[in-house]
């Protein structure tokens, strides 16, 4: 059977062809391809790892940011509250100061009024006394116009003096 007897020529060429094929591919083909495939697999692995890390970091960062936002919000609220407090305080203080000032002014006014009043009183008294003296002078003048009356008065005064002593 021709089919089952290997032909020498074909065996020879098969060896030669396969040797050449193997030499070429083993030198320039497979190592380069395997290296690249492995390298790319590594790269992809690294990329995935990196992406995972990045995602984790991102999640972390988001959390952090949320925390900061929350904190900021709290601070803002606090500041607002503080400002509000301060505002009322300032107003209160201002009011107190104003009332104090007003009190002072009023006190001063009172004092001056008192003084004025005292002065007026004094002046009034002076005037009244001068008026009274005038009136008394006039009355005395009228009453003392006669001798009898004068003597009577002197006597009474002298009596008075005597009584006193």
């Amino acid at each position: 059977m021709e089919l089952f007897t290997p032909d020498f020529g074909l065996v020879f060429w098969m060896f030669v062809a396969f040797a050449i094929l193997f030499f070429v591919l083993a030198k320039w083909g497979w190592p380069a391809i395997m290296k690249m495939i492995e390298g790319r697999a590594d790269l992809i692995d690294k990329g995935v790892e990196y992406a995972q890390n990045a995602k984790e970091q991102l999640d972390h960062a988001r959390e952090e940011a949320n925390k900061y936002i929350e904190e900021a919000r709290k601070q803002q609220a606090e500041m607002l509250r503080d400002a509000d407090k301060m505002k009322t305080q300032i107003i209160e203080e201002a009011r107190v100061a104003a009332s104090k000032e007003a009190q002072k002014v009023m006190d001063a006014a009172k004092v001056s009024i008192e003084q004025e009043r005292k002065e007026a009183e004094l002046r009034f008294r002076d005037e009244v006394s001068s008026f009274a003296l005038d009136i008394a002078t006039k009355v005395v003048r009228n009453q003392m116009s006669d001798e009898k009356a004068q003597t009577k008065l002197v006597n009474s005064l002298l009596d008075e003096l005597e009584n006193k002593n």
């Binding site: 020529g9 074909l10 020879f12 062809a17 070429v24 591919l25 320039w28 391809i33």
Partner: peptide
Amino acid sequence: ISITKNVMALFITVILVIWMVLRVA
């Protein structure tokens, strides 16, 4: 050791495989 039809086909295959693999490389 004639280059018969099979040997020729063998060479063509070798060239094809080399071309294919080196192209990829």
